[in-house]
Amino acid sequence: MSVKERDPLTGHQTTGHEWNGITELNTRVPRAVWAFIIVTHVWAVIYWVLMPAWPGINDYTRGLLGIDQKDRVERQVVAADAARGVWTDRIAALDLEQIRDESMLMAHVDRTAPALFGDNCAACHGARAEGGPGYPSLTDGAWIWGGADDTILETLRVGVNSPHPETRFAQMLAFGRDGILSRDEVRILADYVQSLAGLDSGAGPARLDAGAALFSDNCTSCHGEDGTGTPELGAPNLTDDAWIYGSSDAALFKTIHDGRQGWMPAWEDRLTLAQRKMLALYITGLADAEGGPDGD
């Protein structure tokens, strides 16, 4: 192969080398590439001058603009917070009832609450707050702790059985496991509880009488004489058709035998007062729409 051939097609010369049949042209670097290099490098240098860029041993260049991502986002967060403050401050200050009357504020709630609920609450209470095994429905109007606005807000603030120092505390005792009641008694109570709620337990009158006796000995201190619950203790109403853990024989047996201690997280450190109020408004709104017993 001769040295430095000329490529007939392009008219360029080769470098004169050949590797197993491959040759190379010695074409100049196209102008566009140079232009491209200059543009990108000039841009980079300008950027380095303006922004934090080059390190030394103990420090780095801060850049003429003095920008740092942390300052910037903090400013943005504060500014956004201030912009929202126009209405969030009012929400934080007013009672829920007052807010419900202000359609302007309610418009903000309606826009904000669904996503907030989706990111924080839906995991337990379901996407439409309908609840699920172990997690109460928030739409059925059957409030464990009572449906008053302040009650709901307090639950949101401190949670139930949560690690929050002021948490609400509620415990359904483990009557069977702790040996207070025999298995048989637990089964009788399960039937009795079903009958309280008007469900068909399949138990005869004698068994239900035994259940009533056991119930008044053990359960009324929390769930009340008639089983309608004691909101102050977080002991639910057992006579309605709202169940946290279910009304099947198996679920009731487990509840009474092993006890229950639902853990509702505290939101005080994670959500602002205004956010918690919006959520309370949102769920009470859902409950009203469902038209539950208290819903009105």
């Binding site: 903090e74 201030a82 403050g85 401050d89 934080a92 200050a93 450190d269 602002t272 007062l273």
Partner: peptide, 27 residues
Amino acid sequence: AERTQPAGAQDARAAVAGPAPQPTGTE
């Protein structure tokens, strides 16, 4: 992180200012 960042400023503001707070610009 919670200690050094201004997130949640609004809640603190609302708590301090009580009813009818003035919307202040920054923390």
